[in-house]
Design a protein around this nucleic acid. Structure first.
Lengths: 374, 374
DNA sequence: CTGAAAGCGCTAACAC
DNA sequence: GTGTTAGCGCTTTCAG
């Protein structure tokens, strides 16, 4: 057994594919492949002339380093998974369109600014979904609104891949970090606002699902009612079904103990409640005060404009990505860092019997802003 | 130089990382790594007993094949790029939130069903953006509303990577395929609808940017006006600026030659026009007929409900993915396949002086449905 | 039917 | 300063 069995690799420049490889560039530039790699990655100590020369040749040949090879070698893919827990049939029910779109936009920007890209992945329900997850090399994952015992999260963490969640995880889900609004404070603040505007009996439009957002918000409402000595008045519906929302809004206003103010937890509740109020001949805000949680700008131009609670998804998306990339790149794995982000109540006519002017008020200030924002 | 220089790879089972590799599984199962690979991928002709045995061991060890290694070896990553051309500062201006969200949702589902995942990538404007593009191994790319001479598209096609666009590309952009609505027919149909409802002078709220959608729709409007012998009445504004929309709506209704019907090209135009009409004391639909292009459900519950043109982003997203994956997997590279998808006019009260009932009408039927849908 | 060995294209030690 | 070489973990001929 001699060395003859191991011929110089790529002895005769046999390039099968059309694309230029690092070897072609090295040959054309008259240097070794190491020099090419170093020149292009800004490593090593090469004279600037060599560096420029190699870069020029690489450009001329249209050389693109193979992402797959680099990932295999370095163990870093520059890819971050993005998934949102869903409840319906589809792998993605954007119950809150604007929230998700805005959060994803901000997360994408933030990741990009640090050289990462996001991969949209399904919440794993079926076996097929797991396949896709393991077919992509991820440096970390963002999970929006994780379910209590998400199998994917557990598996990723077991593999040592950082996971940061948007929304405080329930159960004992072992995420690396999480970011959330202080929903309890937000709801309490908003109910106080309605009470100050003259509400005597505040109703709630809530969801039937058990996600953290719905749970915390509803609990906060019930607690507030208890403190205020008000009997709770609420209707719950499956939040992923848009038709159900209109019906639930109608049911709420049709009750014998009809509320004189309503808070809707979901984005479309504002228009649905406005429509329901018209059907019952109720004037907003004179007969009924209205607030809903929404990121949509439509509520600035409805008749009347509707007061909204913004969860500030852009800030959350950015914070989540920063925490995740810190965890990915961090040398010393610090313990879970979590952050409470502020919400913003955009006060409009629907919750102000007198005025017609728009004010801003910030509720639930951040508890650990330095750890999260930069 | 003897073979001693080439020791059996991984001679002493030195696993550095925590995760199990294919070698560990092979050793534990008492077979070779080839057998493990074949057993897990359903290849080769192995007895079912061996196959099951290997699978059991792999499960027990929590073995996950390395996506990076597989990609390097096979040349297929299972990743599809998704990008949307933007005009503002942010890498993603979702001018039409609901459109993009719905299109992306459908595309994600469709890709997933065929074993692919989507990677969100920026329209390349800065040099930094190119880095991210070449740092990820893509099997193909979806481009939403490509600009006329998109450098990324050109580069990808040069590399032999299939590119399918949502929106007919302008210029001579060499995409593999594209899918679009028949915007000309849609606009013409909708203007006919308004005329039939009694409109004498139809105005247009359009954009200042030069993307295909804006261009085709505006042209269709101008052509229709010429055919109908009506003087065009339109206002253009930068569509990515939400405030500008409200102002443009106001301007349009403040003109001395005020239209008695308006079509708004962008999603928020409906609420903005409704608000502007209220300010001028115009009743909808009695004094002003209204239609806007939108995917949002809010227009079903406004006062009055607004007639909308839906571009059916879900169908487009699905079709784009099917064409792209066909191109990726297709053995014989068929020429560019393109598809015109139908739009849907959801007729509501805002364009019907008499009725208050909602009807549906399909406009611009698909030209090549078999090539696109499945 | 099973296994040994040759790389996919790149980066990182380590020679020179 | 620059080049040589050993793999990253997998799939895939090709011998046995």
């Amino acid at each position: 057994m001699t060395a003859a069995k191991y011929p110089a690799p790529r002895a005769k420049g046999r390039r099968t594919s059309g694309r230029a490889g690092i070897r072609e560039v090295a040959a054309a530039a008259g240097v070794s492949i190491t020099t090419v790699s170093d020149a292009l990655n800004g490593k090593g100590r090469l004279p600037d002339t060599t560096r420029r020369h190699v870069r020029a040749i690489a450009d001329r040949l249209g050389y693109r380093p193979s992402a797959a090879a680099r990932t295999l070698r370095t163990g870093k893919s520059g890819l971050i998974g993005l998934t949102v827990t869903t409840y319906g049939e589809e792998p993605f029910t954007f119950t809150e369109f604007a929230y998700f779109a805005e959060m994803a936009r901000a997360a994408t920007s933030a990741a990009l600014a640090r050289g990462y890209a996001l991969v949209i992945l399904p919440a794993a329900s079926q076996h097929r979904d797991f396949d896709v997850w393991s077919n992509v090399a991820l440096d970390g994952t963002v999970v929006i609104d994780p379910s209590d015992h998400d199998p994917v999260v557990t598996e990723l963490v077991r593999q040592g891949i950082p996971v940061v969640s948007d929304g405080q995880p329930g159960g004992d889900l072992p995420v690396t970090a999480w970011v959330d609004n202080d929903h309890q404070a937000a709801v309490a603040g908003l109910l106080d606002h309605l009470a100050a505007a003259g509400a005597r009996r505040i109703g709630l439009l809530t969801g039937t699902s058990t996600d953290t957002y719905t749970r915390l918000s509803t609990t906060a409402y019930l607690n507030w009612c208890e403190r205020a000595g008000q009997e709770p008045v609420y209707e719950a519906y499956p939040a992923h079904d848009p038709c159900a929302g209109a019906i639930a809004a109608d049911r709420l206003l049709a009750r014998p103990d009809r509320p004189d103010a309503v808070y809707g937890l979901f984005d479309p509740n504002g228009t649905d409640l406005l429509a329901a109020a018209r059907r019952y001949g109720l004037r907003v805000p004179e007969d009924l005060l209205l607030v809903c949680c929404s990121e949509s700008t439509v509520y600035a131009a409805t008749e009347p404009p509707v007061t909204t609670l913004s969860l500030q998804p852009a800030r959350i998306g950015t914070a989540v990505i920063q925490l995740l990339i810190d965890a990915i790149e961090g040398t010393e794995p610090r313990g879970p860092q979590c952050g409470m982000m502020p919400t913003e109540l955009l006060v409009r006519a629907s919750s102000q019997p007198g005025a017609r002017r728009t004010e801003r008020a910030t509720v639930a200030a951040p508890r650990k802003p330095p750890a999260v924002e930069r």
